[in-house]
Write a protein that binds this DNA or RNA. Structure first.
Lengths: 84, 84
DNA sequence: TGGCAATATACGTGATCGCGTATAAGCATG
DNA sequence: CATGCTTATACGCGATCACGTATATTGCCA
Protein backbone atom coordinates (compact mmCIF):
# COMPACT_ATOMS: atom_id res chain seq x y z
CA UNK A 1 0.00 0.00 0.00
CA UNK A 2 3.03 2.21 0.24
CA UNK A 3 2.10 4.13 -2.87
CA UNK A 4 -0.76 6.57 -2.84
CA UNK A 5 -2.24 8.61 -5.59
CA UNK A 6 -3.32 12.22 -5.20
CA UNK A 7 -5.20 14.11 -7.85
CA UNK A 8 -6.32 16.98 -5.70
CA UNK A 9 -5.39 18.78 -2.54
CA UNK A 10 -7.78 16.86 -0.37
CA UNK A 11 -6.39 13.50 -1.34
CA UNK A 12 -2.92 14.82 -0.77
CA UNK A 13 -3.86 16.08 2.66
CA UNK A 14 -5.38 12.76 3.58
CA UNK A 15 -2.25 10.93 2.50
CA UNK A 16 -0.11 13.22 4.59
CA UNK A 17 -2.31 12.75 7.59
CA UNK A 18 -2.08 8.98 7.32
CA UNK A 19 1.67 9.15 6.92
CA UNK A 20 2.09 11.42 9.89
CA UNK A 21 0.02 9.18 12.10
CA UNK A 22 1.89 6.17 10.92
CA UNK A 23 5.07 7.94 11.93
CA UNK A 24 3.43 8.49 15.30
CA UNK A 25 3.77 12.23 15.21
CA UNK A 26 1.36 14.92 16.25
CA UNK A 27 0.78 17.91 14.02
CA UNK A 28 2.72 19.95 16.52
CA UNK A 29 5.66 17.57 16.51
CA UNK A 30 5.79 17.45 12.75
CA UNK A 31 5.45 21.21 12.58
CA UNK A 32 8.33 21.85 14.89
CA UNK A 33 10.58 19.63 12.81
CA UNK A 34 9.98 21.76 9.77
CA UNK A 35 9.46 25.13 11.40
CA UNK A 36 5.78 25.32 10.65
CA UNK A 37 3.02 25.88 13.15
CA UNK A 38 0.62 23.19 14.17
CA UNK A 39 -2.12 25.30 12.61
CA UNK A 40 -0.33 25.28 9.29
CA UNK A 41 0.02 21.52 9.31
CA UNK A 42 -3.66 21.35 10.06
CA UNK A 43 -4.48 23.41 6.99
CA UNK A 44 -2.25 21.27 4.83
CA UNK A 45 -3.88 18.06 5.97
CA UNK A 46 -7.31 19.56 5.55
CA UNK A 47 -6.51 19.90 1.88
CA UNK A 48 -6.85 23.65 1.68
CA UNK A 49 -5.89 24.61 -1.86
CA UNK A 50 -3.98 27.73 -1.02
CA UNK A 51 -1.26 26.31 1.15
CA UNK A 52 2.14 26.82 -0.31
CA UNK A 53 4.25 24.32 -2.14
CA UNK A 54 7.09 24.78 0.32
CA UNK A 55 4.77 23.67 3.09
CA UNK A 56 3.99 20.49 1.26
CA UNK A 57 7.58 19.71 0.36
CA UNK A 58 8.76 20.35 3.89
CA UNK A 59 6.18 17.98 5.28
CA UNK A 60 7.04 15.28 2.76
CA UNK A 61 10.67 15.67 3.58
CA UNK A 62 10.11 15.40 7.31
CA UNK A 63 8.02 12.29 6.80
CA UNK A 64 10.66 10.83 4.54
CA UNK A 65 8.35 10.72 1.59
CA UNK A 66 8.89 11.67 -2.00
CA UNK A 67 6.70 12.79 -4.83
CA UNK A 68 6.39 10.99 -8.12
CA UNK A 69 4.80 12.60 -11.14
CA UNK A 70 3.46 10.28 -13.77
CA UNK A 71 0.78 10.05 -16.42
CA UNK A 72 -2.66 9.47 -15.02
CA UNK A 73 -3.35 5.80 -14.80
CA UNK A 74 -6.98 4.97 -15.42
CA UNK A 75 -8.55 8.39 -15.59
CA UNK A 76 -11.50 7.70 -13.34
CA UNK A 77 -14.05 10.30 -14.27
CA UNK A 78 -13.99 13.78 -12.72
CA UNK A 79 -11.29 15.48 -14.66
CA UNK A 80 -10.45 19.14 -14.64
CA UNK A 81 -14.11 19.86 -14.23
CA UNK A 82 -14.29 19.18 -10.53
CA UNK A 83 -11.70 21.79 -9.80
CA UNK A 84 -14.15 24.54 -10.57
CA UNK B 1 11.12 7.46 -18.18
CA UNK B 2 7.48 8.25 -17.53
CA UNK B 3 8.00 8.47 -13.79
CA UNK B 4 9.84 11.35 -12.27
CA UNK B 5 10.80 12.02 -8.69
CA UNK B 6 10.52 15.42 -7.04
CA UNK B 7 11.88 16.15 -3.62
CA UNK B 8 11.73 19.88 -3.83
CA UNK B 9 9.93 22.65 -5.65
CA UNK B 10 12.63 23.08 -8.25
CA UNK B 11 12.56 19.48 -9.32
CA UNK B 12 8.82 19.61 -9.47
CA UNK B 13 8.93 22.71 -11.60
CA UNK B 14 11.39 21.12 -13.97
CA UNK B 15 9.19 18.06 -14.34
CA UNK B 16 6.21 20.21 -15.13
CA UNK B 17 8.14 22.16 -17.70
CA UNK B 18 9.23 18.99 -19.44
CA UNK B 19 5.72 17.64 -19.41
CA UNK B 20 4.26 20.83 -20.78
CA UNK B 21 6.75 20.93 -23.62
CA UNK B 22 6.14 17.32 -24.39
CA UNK B 23 2.47 18.16 -24.64
CA UNK B 24 3.48 20.89 -27.02
CA UNK B 25 1.91 23.67 -25.04
CA UNK B 26 3.14 27.14 -24.26
CA UNK B 27 2.85 28.51 -20.75
CA UNK B 28 0.10 30.72 -22.01
CA UNK B 29 -1.82 27.86 -23.55
CA UNK B 30 -1.54 25.77 -20.43
CA UNK B 31 -2.50 28.73 -18.31
CA UNK B 32 -5.64 29.45 -20.21
CA UNK B 33 -6.77 25.86 -19.84
CA UNK B 34 -6.65 26.13 -16.10
CA UNK B 35 -7.48 29.78 -15.66
CA UNK B 36 -4.04 30.80 -14.56
CA UNK B 37 -1.91 33.48 -16.11
CA UNK B 38 1.18 32.73 -18.10
CA UNK B 39 3.15 34.51 -15.40
CA UNK B 40 1.83 32.15 -12.78
CA UNK B 41 2.78 29.11 -14.80
CA UNK B 42 6.19 30.63 -15.14
CA UNK B 43 6.57 30.92 -11.39
CA UNK B 44 5.44 27.37 -10.90
CA UNK B 45 7.94 25.99 -13.38
CA UNK B 46 10.67 28.13 -11.88
CA UNK B 47 10.18 26.21 -8.66
CA UNK B 48 9.22 29.15 -6.52
CA UNK B 49 8.36 27.74 -3.12
CA UNK B 50 5.39 29.95 -2.40
CA UNK B 51 3.12 29.05 -5.27
CA UNK B 52 -0.07 27.49 -4.10
CA UNK B 53 -1.01 23.87 -4.07
CA UNK B 54 -4.06 24.54 -6.19
CA UNK B 55 -1.80 25.93 -8.91
CA UNK B 56 0.21 22.74 -8.94
CA UNK B 57 -2.79 20.44 -8.95
CA UNK B 58 -4.47 22.36 -11.72
CA UNK B 59 -1.37 22.14 -13.88
CA UNK B 60 -1.00 18.42 -13.25
CA UNK B 61 -4.61 17.90 -14.11
CA UNK B 62 -4.37 19.82 -17.35
CA UNK B 63 -1.29 17.85 -18.32
CA UNK B 64 -3.06 14.63 -17.45
CA UNK B 65 -0.56 13.80 -14.76
CA UNK B 66 -1.04 12.49 -11.27
CA UNK B 67 0.92 12.64 -8.09
CA UNK B 68 2.15 9.63 -6.20
CA UNK B 69 3.38 9.84 -2.64
CA UNK B 70 5.68 7.10 -1.47
CA UNK B 71 8.53 6.47 0.92
CA UNK B 72 11.80 7.91 -0.26
CA UNK B 73 13.65 5.39 -2.28
CA UNK B 74 17.37 5.61 -1.85
CA UNK B 75 17.74 8.75 0.20
CA UNK B 76 20.40 10.35 -1.93
CA UNK B 77 22.07 12.88 0.29
CA UNK B 78 20.59 16.34 0.87
CA UNK B 79 17.85 15.69 3.35
CA UNK B 80 15.85 18.21 5.24
CA UNK B 81 18.99 20.24 5.59
CA UNK B 82 18.90 21.79 2.15
CA UNK B 83 15.52 23.27 2.81
CA UNK B 84 17.05 25.85 5.11
C1' DT C 1 -18.09 10.96 32.81
C1' DG C 2 -13.95 13.70 33.61
C1' DG C 3 -9.79 15.34 32.16
C1' DC C 4 -5.96 15.85 29.07
C1' DA C 5 -3.79 15.68 24.62
C1' DA C 6 -4.56 16.67 19.95
C1' DT C 7 -6.63 19.32 16.44
C1' DA C 8 -9.30 23.19 14.49
C1' DT C 9 -10.12 27.98 14.45
C1' DA C 10 -9.47 33.00 15.62
C1' DC C 11 -7.07 37.82 15.71
C1' DG C 12 -3.73 41.17 14.08
C1' DT C 13 0.54 41.62 11.24
C1' DG C 14 3.76 41.71 7.45
C1' DA C 15 4.71 39.21 3.31
C1' DT C 16 3.27 37.31 -0.90
C1' DC C 17 -0.13 35.23 -3.56
C1' DG C 18 -2.68 35.46 -8.37
C1' DC C 19 -5.02 38.95 -10.80
C1' DG C 20 -5.04 42.37 -15.06
C1' DT C 21 -2.07 44.66 -17.75
C1' DA C 22 2.22 45.64 -19.72
C1' DT C 23 6.84 45.22 -21.07
C1' DA C 24 11.58 43.31 -21.16
C1' DA C 25 14.48 39.61 -22.11
C1' DG C 26 15.40 35.07 -24.63
C1' DC C 27 15.01 32.24 -28.77
C1' DA C 28 14.39 30.61 -33.04
C1' DT C 29 13.61 30.58 -37.95
C1' DG C 30 13.54 33.00 -42.01
C1' DC D 1 20.26 40.38 -38.69
C1' DA D 2 15.33 41.03 -37.94
C1' DT D 3 10.96 39.54 -36.80
C1' DG D 4 7.83 37.10 -34.19
C1' DC D 5 6.81 33.85 -30.55
C1' DT D 6 7.74 32.54 -25.91
C1' DT D 7 9.05 33.33 -21.24
C1' DA D 8 10.42 36.38 -17.35
C1' DT D 9 9.50 40.33 -14.70
C1' DA D 10 7.06 44.67 -13.18
C1' DC D 11 3.10 47.69 -11.10
C1' DG D 12 -0.98 48.27 -8.14
C1' DC D 13 -4.76 45.60 -6.16
C1' DG D 14 -7.58 42.67 -3.15
C1' DA D 15 -7.17 38.24 -1.03
C1' DT D 16 -4.80 35.07 1.75
C1' DC D 17 -0.64 33.14 3.30
C1' DA D 18 2.23 31.72 7.72
C1' DC D 19 3.42 33.96 11.73
C1' DG D 20 2.77 34.41 17.19
C1' DT D 21 -0.46 33.75 20.40
C1' DA D 22 -4.60 32.11 22.14
C1' DT D 23 -8.74 29.53 22.50
C1' DA D 24 -12.56 26.43 21.05
C1' DT D 25 -13.46 21.83 19.72
C1' DT D 26 -12.68 17.09 19.40
C1' DG D 27 -11.24 12.51 20.68
C1' DC D 28 -9.64 9.20 23.74
C1' DC D 29 -9.01 6.52 27.77
C1' DA D 30 -8.82 6.07 32.69
Amino acid sequence: MTEQIARNEKQLGAILRRARRQADLTQGALGSRIHLRQATVSRLEAGEPAVQLSTLMAALSALDLELVVRPRSKSSATEIADLF
